[in-house]
């Protein structure tokens, strides 16, 4: 009984297998005929796409890290350069302090020091100089040169007797005046050629302001 049922099932299933079905028959044949040109499976496409995205993200992250590293290296290089220049300047200042101390000890010897070159603004030498000058704990003589004015103007004493005096006839010019002269020139000319005269006497009658009443 059981075997009969199994036989029936087998026959029915075999008959069903003979009915045509829709599937990718030509694609499978192409894959069989040309294994090199096998069509890429959809799951493989998804896998490769995900792998590509991960790879691209990794490369982007790596390049960003490289850029940041280069920036940091550049900054470190600049800082080291500034520190080196500051050290150089500190050594120069220390040398100058030693020279100044030597001048204090032997003031008769005057040494000529070359003025240090001006540093760039990045170095900030003023702070460095202050820090470097403190450890000496000695009074620093300011490098001030007092220059006296070598030009001397001789002043000769003059007296009235030394000037020769002579009399000359003065011819007054009255009424002749160039028409082109300005009023100022005219007054100047009058003042120059004006003879010493007695000041005009004041009138004996004083001016009296009398109070009056307003008439309406």
């Amino acid at each position: 009984m059981e075997h009969d049922d199994d036989k029936k099932v087998r026959e029915k299933v075999r008959v069903t297998e003979s009915t045509p079905v829709t599937w990718n028959k030509s694609g499978v044949w192409n894959a069989i005929s040309f294994p090199q040109a096998r069509q890429v499976d959809f799951r493989s496409v998804i896998w490769y796409a995900a792998a590509s995205v991960i790879l691209a993200a990794g490369l982007t992250f790596y390049s960003l890290m490289q850029i940041e590293r280069e920036k940091l290296q550049l900054l470190v290089g600049r800082t080291e350069l500034a520190i080196e220049e500051a050290r150089l300047q500190v050594s120069q200042v220390s040398h100058a302090v030693v020279e100044v101390t030597a001048e204090q000890v032997c003031p008769e010897e005057k040494t000529v020091r070359p003025t240090p070159k001006r540093r760039r603004a990045l170095d900030k030498p003023s702070d460095v100089i202050q820090v470097a000058s403190t450890p000496t704990e000695k009074p620093v003589v300011p490098d001030v040169v007092t220059v006296n004015d070598p030009v001397i103007v001789p002043v000769e004493a003059t007296s009235e007797q030394s000037v020769p005096a002579h009399e000359a006839t003065i011819k007054p010019i009255i009424g002749s005046m160039a028409p082109t002269q300005t009023a100022r020139q005219h007054r100047l000319q009058l003042k120059i050629f004006q003879q010493d005269e007695e000041p005009a006497t004041k009138s004996s009658t004083p001016v009296v302001f009398l109070a009056g009443t307003n008439k309406q």
Partner: peptide
């Protein structure tokens, strides 16, 4: 104990394949 599949074998072939 054998299992009776009489009714199952009477089904159409497509139904049998679907149930399998």
């Amino acid at each position: 104990e054998p299992v009776d599949l009489g009714a199952f074998s009477e089904l159409p072939g497509e139904e049998i394949t679907k149930l399998i």
